[in-house]
Nucleic acid binder design. Structure first.
Length: 445
DNA sequence: CGTCCACGTCTAC
DNA sequence: TAGACCTGGACGG
């Protein structure tokens, strides 16, 4: 879960669940973690939290006595989070544990399956990280505009957005969502995009109040870097670590990341960027080392994924690979094959409809018609899943002819279509995977 | 069973 | 600018 909003929500979570709780004794580290011990020990202390960008600071405050207050600064890596549980329900991968004085004891755990997360005892916010995009909007903006002549801004905007020196809190899904709102091609040179922001291209010669109004209604790129993450924080029902976590809310909120109909490419660091329309001029060329693309090759009638495609491409010349890459762009065109493919998908989806709850189907937003300040709740159904960031693309409200008719020009699809459990009661015995649906449909035909 | 992929840094060549 | 660092879910065979 961990981009800026998730870190912020984690801090809110800690403050909520630890409110009024007393902790005591030693802080325990799992033996497997390579992070440092936290040599804090105190008979009685409280825990609170603050976040800044992609860091969270836990503050340990002794209740009485001479002990000094301490803190631990966390980074979440790809899978970090906090969770308060009864001691006997400690989750797997709980790498740092703060014990409460309750009977039975409770534990505030730093849970991190992949162990990319880190912490520092009595550490400070990392010096190299810029101001928080969500909680220090003005400083954040200033820090970017002040450094436009720096070298990093030679790069594509999508890559600079992951540079925490300037965009502390933005991560891979946020960059796609933000660029999507303004339809900025991800591989536009960052400086070009930001010079436009600096010059406030929108409202020459208007009265101040008009300017303010326009600013509010049409947030520029840097404002969106604050507003879009703030939207995520505002999403109801989305509370990481709690029992009430409901990640479907986040998935439904996403308009671009892993969304059907969106394009994707690898940036020069091998990270997948999702976008609509043109990629922009600085697309990494088919250099070796570039990771494989993820969208689906549409031509074959049989359901073929990029993965299989890639396998077929493996070992071929760079030129051939490049050609394949060009295909991604070519997919922009709606050819017969695409139609056939989509029709097939529609059939499959209808098939799904027989076993799943129809729920929000057909209520997908119209892509490409949104305005930037449009309210959030886009109904773009994805599967419910334990993680807001499923390992594989959550299948979204793909279903149906209606979708194909609506979506202007779907160019690529998520490579994988995971189990279609969307809107399906989680324990339903009838739960049917996308894959099995495909099989069934094949048998029939 | 094996392969691919994932919300992020880090550091070594 | 490759990898390394990790686990685990989805999918393909």
């Amino acid at each position: 879960m961990p981009e800026g909003p998730e870190l912020h929500l984690a801090a809110l979570y800690v403050n909520r669940v630890c409110d009024g709780l007393r902790f005591g004794g030693k802080v325990e580290k799992s033996s497997v973690s390579k992070n440092p011990e936290v040599p804090f020990s105190c008979a009685e202390y409280t825990i609170s939290a603050v976040s800044r960008g992609k860091e969270v600071k836990l503050i340990l405050t002794p209740v009485r006595g001479a002990a000094e207050a301490a803190c631990v600064v966390f980074r979440f890596g790809m899978s970090g989070n906090f969770k308060l549980t009864p001691e006997d329900e400690m989750p797997k991968h709980a790498h740092l544990r703060f014990y409460s004085l309750d009977v039975p004891r409770q534990v505030l755990c730093f849970v991190d399956a992949r162990r990319f997360g880190s912490w520092e005892y009595n550490g400070a916010w990392q010096r190299e990280r810029g101001p928080c995009v969500m909680t220090e909007c003005d400083k954040f903006r200033e820090n970017v505009l002040k450094h436009l002549s720096d070298k990093p801004f030679d790069k594509p905007i999508c890559e600079v957005m992951l540079n925490q020196k300037y965009f502390n809190g933005i991560g891979n899904y946020l960059r796609s969502e933000i660029l999507f709102r303004l339809k900025i091609p991800p591989f536009m040179p960052a400086r070009t995009v930001l010079e436009g922001v600096k010059n406030g291209s929108q409202s020459e010669g208007l009265s101040l109040s008009k300017k303010v109004k326009i600013k509010k209604e049409n947030p520029d790129f840097l404002q969106l870097c604050s507003l879009v993450p703030l939207e995520v924080i505002q999403l109801g029902g989305y509370t990481p670590g709690s029992k009430r976590e409901d990640y479907t809310v986040l998935m439904q909120w996403m308009q671009c990341y892993y969304a059907p109909g969106m394009n994707n490419l690898r940036d020069s660091n091998g990270r997948t960027v999702w976008f609509e329309g043109e990629p922009g001029p600085l697309v990494p060329k088919g250099r070796k080392g570039q990771k494989k693309r993820k969208s689906v090759d549409i031509k074959p009638v049989k359901v073929e994924t990029k993965a299989t495609k890639r396998k077929a491409t493996r070992g071929k010349s760079t030129a051939v690979k490049k050609e394949c890459k060009e295909e991604v762009k070519a997919e922009a065109g709606v050819e017969t094959a695409v139609k056939r493919k989509r029709a097939k998908m529609a059939d499959i989806s209808s098939e799904d409809d027989k076993v799943t709850n129809k729920g929000a189907r057909g209520k997908r937003p119209q892509r490409g018609k949104k305005t930037v300040d449009e309210p959030q709740v886009k109904i773009c159904r994805r599967s419910s899943h334990q993680s807001p960031m499923p390992k594989t693309p959550a299948k979204r409200g793909k279903s149906t002819k209606q979708q194909s008719a609506e979506a202007p020009t779907p160019k690529s699809r998520p490579r994988r279509l995971k189990a279609d459990v969307g809107n399906q009661p989680l324990n339903s015995p009838k739960l049917k995977t996308r894959r099995s649906a495909v099989r069934t449909s094949k048998k029939k035909s």
